[in-house]
Design a protein around this nucleic acid. Structure first.
Lengths: 164, 164
DNA sequence: TCCAAATTGACAATATATTGTCAATTTGGA
DNA sequence: TCCAAATTGACAATATATTGTCAATTTGGA
């Protein structure tokens, strides 16, 4: 089903964009790791910490994993490490005997705030001169693509484990 | 060093964009895996295969890894598997006794073409209606950000192993 | 109330990625 | 020509991610 030439230019443009997303993702993770390494964080830990910090209410591991699009087991592993280091605690959940609620400790909150304080000027330098409009528009494009990828044909990570 | 409000909106917009890049990257890898799974490929294998197929001349593993921004060892592992499956071969390199040149076999070329044929209509569906201009502009934004991340403060993957 | 389905954390097996080191070899400048 | 530095693949140790399974528990509909 060959399309019009303009549709093909569109396809090519998106393909290039996708390749750039892969490259940028790699660079961002590497840069994030460097940014918080001396705090004992990694990009992965930071991401989990962020989900805990930003969630309006404390949540169990499985729910955090689901909302991050990560594997339950991977998040569990990270959370267990963070517990061992006194960065988060697992509190009893009045609504579920097994599913403990993950909460930041004082130390965890301080850690997250430190990382946040460091992230901002870093992002500011990266953002300089890009323009709100261009950034918002790029964001919109990526979001549309992601949403198209996520409709049906695909299953969520958790569903894969459960259903297959 | 507090900036003007507009600079902060810019920072916020970029932060949102960055989070979206992480999410999209995950979705793309998952979708890519599904797209070529029945061909015996994964996103990682496909990426390596692409580097081999698109390079104007055959290259050794270390060079492929460098140009992909991946670890030499990871690419080596994938290439070894591809050799075992008859998808690529390691040919003698007249200029270097150890660094064999990775080349696609007939089978490998056919496989890559099959994957490519499948990728195009898939990308076309994803791209529909996005507009060349929006895609190109988004690409430009991501590229600028990546290039800023890659100047100095950071070392290339290979350099890290060698220099530290 | 009851019970099948879904959720959850634990555990284990395996796959994959990362980090570090080494020796063979090539490269490039003195 | 010579030799220090860089590149390269091999190997190994470890870290991390993925997949699969299970039992405890909760949920939601009959």
């Amino acid at each position: 089903m060959q399309q019009s030439p303009s549709a093909d230019r569109e396809t090519d443009a998106l393909t290039q964009l996708i390749l750039e997303v892969f490259r940028l993702n790699g660079s961002l993770i590497a840069a994030g790791d460097r940014l918080v390494a001396d705090l004992g964080l990694t990009s992965a830990r930071w991401q989990v910490l962020g989900a805990i910090a930003l969630s309006p209410t404390a949540e169990p591991v499985a729910r955090l994993a689901r909302s991050l699009g990560l594997h339950r087991q991977g998040v569990q592993r990270i959370v267990n490490e963070l517990v061992a280091e006194g960065i988060v605690t697992l509190d009893d959940n009045p609504h579920h005997r097994r599913a403990k609620l993950v909460r930041l400790t004082k130390k965890g909150e301080a850690l997250y705030r430190t990382a946040e304080r460091r992230q901002r000027p870093w992002a500011r330098k990266l953002a300089r001169g890009i323009g709100v409009k261009a950034a918002v528009s790029a964001h919109a494009v990526l979001k549309v693509v992601r949403e198209r990828l996520e409709i049906e044909p695909q299953m969520k990570i958790e569903e894969r484990n459960t259903k297959l």
